[in-house]
Design a protein around this nucleic acid. Sequence first.
RNA 1: GGCCCCGUCGUCUAGCGGUCUAGGACAUUUGGUUCUCAUCCAAAAGAUCGCGGGUUCGAUUCCCGCCGGGGUCACCA
Length: 473
Amino acid sequence: MTDAHVRTRYAPSPTGIPHIGNTRTSLFAYLLAKKYGGEFLIRLEDTDKDREVEGSEQKIYQINDLLGITPDESPVKGGPFGPYVQSQRLDLYQKYSQLLIDSGAAYYCFCSEERLKELHEKDQYAKYDRHCRHLSQAEVQRQMVSGTPYVIRAKMPETGFSTWHDLVQGKLSMPNAECDDKVLIKRNGVPVYHFAVVIDDHLMEISHVIRGVEYIVSTPIHLFLYEALGWEPPVLAHVPLLLGPDKSKLSKRHGAKSVLGYVDDGYLPEAIDNFLFYLGFSYKDNSDLLTLDQMVEIFDEKRIQRQNAIFDIQRLNYLNSQWIKKMPIEDLFLRLNAFIPADWNDDKVKQILELVKERMFTLRDFAPAAEYFFTAPVVSAQSVLDQSGHTEKETVVWFETAKSIIKSISDFTATALHEELANAQAISGLSPKEAFMSLRVAISGRSVTPPLFDCLVILGKEETLKRLSSIFS
RNA sequence: GGCCCCGUCGUCUAGCGGUCUAGGACAUUUGGUUCUCAUCCAAAAGAUCGCGGGUUCGAUUCCCGCCGGGGUCACCA
């Protein structure tokens, strides 16, 4: 590694909503660039038009924006190394593939798809048999003029090893013989991933390539291409995968969602950032709430874990609940918008939020916990009696006492209510639990709510009395 | 199957030859805060450091083998 300017990239293909593992890799790439004061960019790898999924490009940007891992250069933002979309750079790939042909590092292959298919039928692990690698100049010429469709393949070394120092994996080595003479340019003239990345990473002056471990095996071909083109390869960093609880590669089968899905479920982008960060990196006890800037400061590419990490939703829940508790009410209120009915009064929501936020794991937990403040619950007399533990007659007496205190109290605050009602409870013959739980159920219809007196204040004197009166009528 | 990577509590991890009868956090369990739940605080339980060999006076830490898990073998990325 030189101390040249650091530039990293996230190069997704628009074939669906990005997998959360890819998002994590993108976070690491961002962190690395920012740590060294460099640039982070997004490049769209859309060379396979058949697999393209409508709308996924927007989702890619949306996720990164949400998480704050915003690119300095991208297809939408542009930049000095554009275009940032591979399908708009086709002439470039054409030019370099010609260079490779001329120098003998690549060759034309006229093999039919049927022949290739046959090869694979004989052996599912078969590599290309390099049939066209040694075609004579004349034969190539003959095929060309007769218009046989062709692809361009890399002329990989047949012996030796490709060895490199990986930033996270350490020293890595792969036998060249393991590598196929990979197709560089497809029959339709469009480059394949392996070719396009190399060209673009070099042209865009990417200094560090951060990608998933699934690309380790294709690194030799990339290295070969760099060498053939006379280019200095970037520093490579292969980061581990995200696994499901059963240790197989994380997928929808495990209930895993994209970042967008988690945001829909009420997770805060801040918590998702932290969660992703700690999955594969350690700092203190892995439970500090960190901002993106703090992560940039702490991040150290040499300390990225080498083992795959299991996606544990409980950790996300913890981080999310902590962020919710920490966040100022005004901020939290803004995030809550998509999760509550439009007709709920803002000020009331904020008041309730103050009480409920320490009981929330996600933003979705708010509405169910706040709903009875806005809509009077249907409460049966029996459910109240179950809590009071006394006869209906005795319970009615207690309720009348409570109502008259509430009605006459001038200072309608939680502390005053607490004091007055506790005094009354003491001489009521009901235990504190019986007295207050029966009131709780009467006003909320449930046995679990924030502290009773706080709830009464939010409900208001009038509404409280109304609800208490409706029970034994 | 070939090749490559990985292997410390259920999970995220600390550990870089003796400080480890292995530390922290999440989750779990139990207490405490005289209304529930939650928060908060405290405590408990939880890992023969995948297994077997070496090297060493001494291995969680170094080497080898095995086992287990993962990745990859497309005109996908």
